[in-house]
Write a protein that binds this DNA or RNA. Structure first.
Lengths: 342, 342
DNA sequence: TTGTATGCGTTATCAG
DNA sequence: CTGATAACGCATACAA
């Protein structure tokens, strides 16, 4: 910029004004501007974002801290985030993405991320408490996505999905087909996981269905975890006729293990997933699952993060922090059918 | 920092020195340091990365520009990148990730990314030329991963996989089982895609296998693309007994379409993929595919990007830019078998 | 050993 | 309308 000023024979501050001019407004200058602009582009001048940011300007950077980018669901979420962010002129900084996001990692990511205008938490983490604590004293806006819909006392705005409704819709689908012995496979009890599991138990109780011992499996949220869960469930007596998986990833593991173990799906066993990742439409057979409005959730999240809505962090509107909950939809594919007549 | 200095009753420069002290070295001070450190942590002081960077210090940020984060293969690559980067103290900035990474997007990402110490290109892009041109005049190091192994004249260091070896190994596996009518399904001819396709043609010619018209399909690199390709291939006469897919994503689409169309795999049709994404082990049946050493490729890429090796951008060592090629491995699973006796 | 002064690239505030 | 100057937070050469 100094160079541009020198080349144009004007003061550097003049160049600054011309380059980020408020068009219709003040302090224009017929030819000076033209000359400066020409020289600037000629010299290939690019503003230095760091210097701008140092002056207090927004960095237009969004920090995304994600539990596991390897999880296709979160990959899709990040894609949506990316698109949504770009639309508003923001770029996305990926705050790690390590399978077992241990606190230090996430923390570090956040630290580095201080240059961000806002931070988006994708999924909850194991030692959430310290992370959130740390974030509270950070000077950035924070929103938490997929941190559970029912959780109270969350220090930040949250956007999530109604897990209870999703699970109930799926189970309703199963029972309406005649299933009574329905097992559940979930992973560690993070927010959403916990709610899905609770919703399962609640539904079983309300419907008067048997809660067979061993029907509730907790495994890692991986394909391998699903495989391992299926093996265990087949050993239960009587074995379930349907399995509700808390995640498509788990469901895919179940599907594969069933294939290997020569259990017909949906003939001998119905399987339902949750998330509707792209792969869910292409499993063999296609996976019945619960779909969330990811794009809408993202849009809402970003609005909360950088929109005007979240601006009034005071006590203006009503509740703070705001909590938004979206409704999921059941997608029926080939992995569910009526149980064989027993 | 000013506050810390004031509270401790010392000069701001002193605080600076103490906080990033070169331990064994100069300019220590018994109690002053202790007091300053205590006060600093008490006040919850955090260095401001922007200001540091403005002074010319490395930002410890790695820009990753990826074609499509929704692609599980790239998601895995980013995960590996993340891990590898973290090990060296770097954070990862995700430069978009839009299905159809059109030039403007990638360009923008790169622009914003000027604060990065280096940029990692994951996969090649459609209008690569302009992108690369723009990058050449940027003051950052750039490495290109998965930009094809044979490509000449690439302006940046590249790390890739030997597509030819991978395809040949897969086809060798097929022909050794007795297959002769082998089709190929690929996507738009970006670097790696092109090489895989060329390797297929080369192998067929060398092995004296028939090159049936319609055996070469070009579809979008999606599950849907694979499904669509299978339908087309079944209409060829005679239909192939095996299909080589340029990508696991395509292979999964083939698998699903085969299931829907009641074509038995591997009974009636063998299918081979390329990438070995996590899902490949859990398809029904398991997918025979070609695995790349992703972690090693990433490590090499990062070394090139931020290690000492790439420092001599001059004409010291020998060739510039360096080009590294890794060998893939064939993973045999259930999706391939001998063709039915015709 | 520690304090003072300077500059990194911008923008904002004042004068001129 | 435009030029000079301060300030953002930090690191460093230099002076004390």
């Amino acid at each position: 910029m100094k160079d541009v000023a020198a080349a144009a024979g004007v003061a550097q501050s003049t160049v600054s004004r011309i380059l980020n001019d408020t068009p219709g407004r003040i302090s224009v200058s017929a030819r000076t501007r033209e000359r400066v602009q020409e020289i600037a582009s000629e010299l290939g001048y690019r503003p230095h974002p760091l210097a701008r940011a140092l002056r207090g300007a927004p960095t237009m950077l969004l920090g995304a801290v994600v539990r596991d980018i390897t999880d296709p669901f979160f990959a899709g979420a990040i894609d949506a985030l990316s698109v949504e962010a770009k639309e508003r002129g923001y770029s996305v900084v990926l705050g790690h993405a390590g399978a077992k996001a241990d606190e230090a990692l996430a923390l570090t990511a956040v630290l580095e991320a201080r240059q961000c205008d806002a931070i988006v938490l994708l999924g909850d983490f194991r030692d959430e408490r310290r992370l959130l604590e740390d974030l509270r004293r950070a000077p950035v806006r924070v929103v938490a996505l997929w941190h559970g819909a029912e959780r109270r006392g969350h220090p930040f705005p949250t956007v999530g999905v109604d897990n209870r409704a999703g699970i109930h819709a799926a189970l309703q689908h199963l029972t309406s087909r005649g299933h009574e012995r329905i097992a559940f496979v979930g992973a560690a009890s993070l927010g959403d996981m916990h709610e899905r599991r609770a919703a399962y138990e609640e539904y079983l109780a309300a419907a008067g269905l048997p809660s067979v011992r061993g029907y509730m499996r907790r495994v890692p949220n991986t394909i391998g975890g699903g495989e391992q869960a299926l093996a265990a469930l087949l050993r239960a007596s009587p074995p379930p006729t349907a399995i509700m998986a808390a995640t498509d990833t788990l469901a895919i593991g179940l599907l594969h293990a069933a294939f290997e173990l020569r259990v017909a799906v949906p003939g001998d066993l119905s399987i339902v997933g949750f998330d509707d990742i792209p792969m869910a439409a292409a499993t063999v057979p296609g996976l019945t699952t619960v779909r969330m409005p990811v794009a809408e959730i993202m849009a809402a999240g970003i609005e909360l993060a950088v929109g005007d809505a979240g601006a009034g962090e005071g006590f203006d509107g009503g509740d703070w922090p705001p909590r938004m909950v979206f409704l999921p939809t059941l997608i029926v594919r080939g992995s569910t059918a009526a149980p064989i007549a027993a």
